[in-house]
Each structure stands twice: as C-alpha cells, then as structure tokens.
Nucleic acid binder design. Structure first.
Lengths: 222, 222
DNA sequence: TAGATTGTTAATCGATTAACAATC
DNA sequence: TAGATTGTTAATCGATTAACAATC
C-alpha cells in the first residue's frame, strides 16, 4: 500500500477525464495512446498530460506512448476504483434518489447501501434497489457497517445536523450537495458540490459573452 | 451595460460562496462586513477576498468594511442575478426532475420553461410546475422563445444529439450533466458538471487519507 | 483623533507550457 | 536505423499571500 503519492489538486481533477477517455479507447480496441492524442481528446496540452501522469507513474514508452490497459490500471489503483467504496445517502428526495439510481456510480466503485429519510411515507420503500431507512438509524448503521463515505442531499437547513450524525457514526468523508459550508472535525473531509457555482458561472458568461468556461474540450476521433 | 470586466476563473468560482454568506449576513441584519470576517466565513484569505472584489468593484470603506447590501447588489449585477435566465432541460429522468424542482434555482434567477423527453409516458405530464414536452419540439421551442441556456440530463450516449438540437435552436450555453465531452461551435459555451470528478476526488482522499479537498471552510458565527 | 480596514503593489508560490536529451 | 514520443528540466505565466500607505 505504501503510497506517499501527493497529487496537485488541478491534476487530480483532470484524472477522471483521462480515465473516461481511456475506457473509450480500450473499447475501441486501442493498445497504445500518446500524450498528444490524449491531449486532443481531452482538450489539454500534451505536455500537461505527461506531467500529470508522471506525478504517479512513469511507465510510458518513448516512441510508442502509453499502454492503454496499463494506464487504466494505474488510474484505477490511484483513484481507488480497484476496490468498492460503500456509502450512505441522507435525504431521499429527488436529488437523493437521482444519485441512488445514477448508473455511472457502480462503474466508479461506489456502492450505496442505504438512503435515510425523515418522511415516514418514504421510510420502508426502495429506490433503485436501495432501501430507504429512518433517519434516526443513520449514526448506528454507519457505525455498525463501518461506512466511510456519506452523501448529503437534504435541504440546507438540516444539512449540518445530518453531517453531525454522520460524523458521530464515524464517517470520514462527506459529499455535500446542500449549498452550505459544513463544520466538521479536521479528520473528516468534505467536498461540497454547489450547483450555484456552475449556474452562476454560466449566467455570468451569458451576460458578458466572451471567453468560455472550463471543459470545452474539442475531442477528435480516435 | 458597458462591461469589460474580465474576472479570473478562480475568482469567479468563489463569488457564489461570498454571495451566499452575504445573503445570510443580510438576513441577520448586518450592515457592514470586513474582508477578514468574510474570509473567516468562507475559509479564504482576507487578502484574497479584497483582491477578488477589486476585480469588479472598489467600493469598500477603509476602517469600516463593505456595505452588505451594496456588495450584494454588485454581485447580483455581475453574476446576472438581477435578471432572469430562462432555460430548458433535456431529459426528465430523476436528475432532470431533481433540477426542475431544485428550490435554490429561482433565487439565482433561473427559470426552467420546459423539460423534454423521448419517453411518451412522461410527455404531457408536469414536474414541479414544469411541463414535460416531446423531445422533437426542443429545437423549435428554444428557437421561438429565444432560450439561451440548455441543461442536459440525458444518458451519455444521446447527449451529443441533444446538444446538437439545442445548438440548432440557438442555445448559447449548455450546462451538461452527462459525463461526455460535447462538441459544439465556438460561440456556444459548455460547462460539464461531472459527478465522477467529485466522487473520484473523495475516494482518492479516502484511500490516501491526507490533505482535505476544497471547501472545508470553517465558518464562524457572524 | 486613534483604530480599523481598505485598495494596491510587491513577494511568493505553484501550475502550465516549452524545449530537448534520452530511448524505444 | 530513422522517427516518434517519452520523462524531466527550464521558462513562463498567473494566482495567492504579505505588506503597507491611504483613508474612513
């Protein structure tokens, strides 16, 4: 396991894009891919592609490029896709259920064990095979099963309470979809997925029509 | 309107956080706020807070700070919140309907006019007051109403087709929730909201438990 | 006035891009 | 071998942080 890998955040956030492109390349039967091709496919500089990979791996073959299967394996190892991550969802509203049934997650190694709700009408039902349980059971179940990741899709005003319950149960990472800054102990990591950021970025660009925001990649065919 | 404002992306992405905190401060009846307080509330450096604001406004009062109401007004103007942005959603699945009923959007000036679907069972229904229409009508309606923003929540394999239909209708900005890189003309801006990025970032951190990802702000009370 | 906090310049830090010798 | 592409160092660029005179 010994893994002192320290990846810069910008690099880390680009890795999923490489991963998706590589999966597609593998499906097309491609054996090797060069940093230049990968750069075209993701809209990134080829020099940056090489630099990104070299943060965790230097297995490219000069003159040939990277072996697709090998690179995928490295990324899966690094990103934790080689093992399953179990998670619980707090909130079985529209967003919560959308996440429970999001098809891409299983391929990314995410397994949602249960959703938690206050609304008694929903308790006892199932969403896409995920049982909806009473919110008061959250801490206990998380603790008992040793779940490390909690996903929050409840309204903003109760998000902190839910986060506290998760932390009590031993959750180590929180994926927060409520637009609030959560207060958690230092050992717990939080990633807030604030839709307002995306929306406001777009409406700002719409208003001052000029340079585009991120991810306007111009992929070409492989 | 004359607005040659050129805001660096990192700054632009922090503005929504300031905005949310400011709204909360206004509700608490606060008149003034300093860059130091704002920094504590958002987890950012106070120097950075001032620098961010000075990209578009230098209306702070030395010795006092920023007038909350005034700053909110500036942000609303800059981010395009002072006017409504009309949008359509392609895909009335769980994620599409979740977005249609997302309560925070109206406060951000977003108005979803319609959702579009292929599934005839859903066509003709309503989601949170938003009519679900036949997908073949997308281009026509977008064109007729002059809608500028399109939101894509369809499965990855049809996302490009949907994007093309939007572009044909005259859409200028696409908020893409499908994990694919869309190919669009230069004048159309795309923001892809890829959940894989968030998930993989978290699972990576979980695996190599170390420094936390973004937005672990430690807000204090105002 | 004295104290606080701004706007802005300068110093630091880190990330991106360019360049190229090493090597398949 | 000749051609291609890597890994890595150096150069550039831009963003963050520190510092402070101006000013309310």
């Amino acid at each position: 396991m010994a893994d002192p890998v320290k990846i810069p955040r910008p690099t880390l956030e680009r890795l999923p894009a490489y991963y998706q492109v590589l999966i597609a390349l593998r499906e097309h039967g491609r054996d090797y891919v060069s940093s230049r091709q990968l750069g075209e496919l993701t809209g990134l500089d080829n020099s940056q592609v090489r630099k990104d990979f070299n943060h965790f791996w230097s297995g490219g073959r000069p003159g040939r490029g990277y072996r697709v299967a090998e690179l995928i394996g490295q990324l899966e190892e690094l990103l934790g896709l080689s093992s399953t991550t179990e998670a619980v969802v707090a909130g079985a509203g529209r967003l919560g259920t959308a996440l429970c049934s999001y098809p891409g997650f299983s391929a990314l190694g995410l397994r949602i064990l249960a959703a938690f709700e206050n609304d008694s009408a929903k308790i006892g039902t199932e969403v896409a095979g995920v049982p909806v349980l009473d919110a008061i059971k959250l801490t206990g179940l998380v603790n008992r099963l040793g779940v490390r990741l909690g996903i929050i899709t409840v309204p903003p005003d109760v998000a902190q309470v839910v986060a506290d319950a998760m932390v009590d149960g031993g959750i180590e990472a929180i994926w927060n979809f409520a637009p609030v800054a959560l207060v958690v102990p230092d050992h717990v990591i939080v990633r807030t997925e604030d839709l307002a950021v995306g929306l406001l970025t777009l409406s700002h660009h719409l208003k001052h029509k000029e340079n585009p925001p991120m991810s306007s990649a111009q992929p070409q065919d492989a």
